[in-house]
Amino acid sequence: MSLDHLSTELVDLRCPYCDAHIHLIIDPTDDSQEYTEDCEVCCQPMLVFTEGDQIVRLAREDE
């Protein structure tokens, strides 16, 4: 299996819980995504909304 077609982007953001600088890896080949990812600092679950290669919104899961 060739992995030449795989592409990811590293995005710098701030956690909606602890306001720490975090890094997320997104797949710019997907038109839009919605998923949950834990903050790498405080481990709280964040909702991540993307469109193409851009993070549209980060939200607290408890909102």
Rank of each mutant, 00 (worst) to 15 (best):
V11I: 15
Q33A: 15
V48S: 04
C42E: 10
D27K: 04
E34M: 10
V41M: 08
T29Q: 14
C39Y: 05
L10N: 13
D30A: 06
A59S: 14
P16G: 08
T36R: 09
D19N: 13
V41L: 06
D12E: 15
T50F: 03
C15M: 06
S7M: 14
V41N: 12
D4L: 09
Y17M: 06
L13K: 06
D27P: 02
S2Y: 08
E9G: 01
S7G: 00
Q33F: 06
M46W: 01
R57I: 08
D38F: 05
Q54C: 11
G52D: 06
D31T: 09
A20E: 15
F49L: 13
D30K: 15
C42T: 07
E63T: 08
Y35V: 00
I55R: 04
D4Y: 05
F49M: 13
R60F: 14
L24P: 05
I55N: 04
L47A: 08
V41F: 12
H23D: 10
V11P: 03
L58Y: 06
D4P: 01
C39S: 11
C15R: 01
I22A: 08
T8H: 07
C15Q: 07
E63K: 05
T50R: 01
Y17L: 03
T50N: 02
C42A: 11
P28A: 07
Y17V: 03
L3F: 12
